[in-house]
Design a protein around this nucleic acid. Structure first.
Lengths: 260, 260
DNA sequence: CGTCACGTTGAGGTTAGTCAAGATGTGTGG
DNA sequence: CCACACATCTTGACTAACCTCAACGTGACG
């Protein structure tokens, strides 16, 4: 089904779950906060929003004034340039924050779309900032850490796209998802991806055909067993090594830079 | 001269210039703030630090607790992976903020190195956050906008690295610098780059040789005149069009996605 | 004036993209 | 419930963009 025929309206649900009773709090803003700090945070978390597959949570350029904590399901974010070329900039799992490119009253650069039925906790950023200011260092730092980690994550992606071979990119993606699933209490070695091969290929800066051949290659080598979106990692060590070591470009620039 | 023999100690200078009298304020955190807000901000801007070429401002993993507003000169930031592979993640000009990957008490992911003699205004992040909290929305938003723009900039870089041809990458870089120099009161079409071809190639995910050939090609086509680090843009329109339109990958994924 | 970092050029190779076609699944309507 | 349409994924043959290796020019600096 074409992505665009889905209507882009989010459906508010009635139930409001507090951060203190949320099973994801250890991954989300609440991580490391005291009970009273949690209550403080709770007051600014609005209702949950539910989005269906391919439904847009917010568009690039929307004056959202909100960020979103993924509660269930998953999202992709992407940017589209003047020529219509798309680049997926992130996949977001429960406990992760979407919309950090739209803080401080500016409009987000990216569009967020649900990869499957998914829900988010909606957080008004003006209110969040007010609350953070009334709160203590803990809550403030907790939020700033999330922002900084998003920047660091994108820097790592620049390394992947700028320096890594196609093999290393996929290995990196697979082990990365493994780690993130494990953090969420699932298996690190067997999981279902919620995104298509097209999405993965775009995210990794590869052609779909190349990606398909890589999946085949990894299977033939016994690293994984992949059946459509179901992935089983059979040789974590090999994948991990691949993800770290295999680069498509010899390190000839700045040879004299021994801080390797 | 190898980068590493430079000693990594910054040299504090005596003079402290307030934000209100800084010629770069329209580009920096102060942009759009009132005079009283400026004074408030001024109280947390520490002394200036001076770094010589190839000197490190901070290392990845340092517990800096600081961010830096570039005051003069320029910096590059880069990350280095386990295998010693390097990826330059940004070039920073006066008025821009370095170190946003180290907010909230975590250590920065990247290392910042001066490309030439350069100075920064040092800002303690715990103090900055405290001040932001005492201040009004304006100051708060001003800072959050800077953070969000950094995230957006890195997303654009993912587009460049993931989707653009080598030609488009260089065109994008050159026009990008042009715009940034113009913002700072310099010519958009004639400027001196402070970084080596190696640095540019690494940043753009290309081999130095490829970059060199591209410079030659752009000259032959009459787009630029480049003599080492001096660049004169002769045909801005052509470069701009190149930077936007030329992709090395046909847009065959998600053909059904007409929100181009 | 020799050294060294930096940049350029040429020849050749390789990775990953392109094009085309077919296979496999999935949703929808008769 | 089946058949058709369509999205998704896979496979093969070919191509090209960019990388690699090697060598040489050039400018800065002691």
């Amino acid at each position: 089904m074409p992505e665009t025929i889905k209507h882009p309206v989010t459906i508010p649900t009635e139930k409001k779950v507090g951060c203190h009773s949320c099973g994801l709090s250890y991954l989300c803003i609440p991580h490391g906060l005291s009970s009273s700090e949690l209550e403080n945070l709770d007051t600014i978390v609005k209702s949950r929003l539910r989005t269906e597959r391919n439904e847009v949570l917010y568009h690039a350029g929307d004056n959202t004034q909100r960020i979103f904590a993924v509660s269930s399901g998953s999202y992709k974010t992407f940017i589209i340039n003047e020529q219509g070329r798309k680049q997926i900039t992130g996949f977001y799992l429960p406990g992760e924050i979407v919309g950090l490119d739209g803080l401080g009253g500016i409009c987000p650069n990216s569009t967020a779309m649900a990869l499957e039925t998914a829900t988010v906790c909606e957080i008004s950023t003006p209110e969040l900032l007010d609350k953070l200011c009334q709160a203590n260092h803990n809550l403030r730092n907790s939020f700033m850490r999330i922002v900084s980690r998003e920047i660091s994550r994108e820097q790592q992606m620049m390394m992947v796209l700028g320096q890594m071979s196609a093999e290393a990119r996929l290995a990196n993606l697979l082990t990365g998802f493994g780690v993130r699933f494990r953090e969420r209490g699932f298996s690190a070695t067997e999981f279902n991806l919620s995104m298509s091969r097209h999405d993965i290929a775009n995210y990794l800066g590869l052609a779909v055909e190349t990606l398909s051949r890589l999946f085949k290659k990894f299977q033939e080598k016994g690293y994984i067993r992949a059946s459509r979106r179901n992935i089983k990692i059979l040789d974590w060590k090999a994948l991990y090594a691949l993800s770290k070591s295999n680069c498509h470009r010899k390190n000839r620039g700045n040879q004299n830079h021994p801080d390797k």
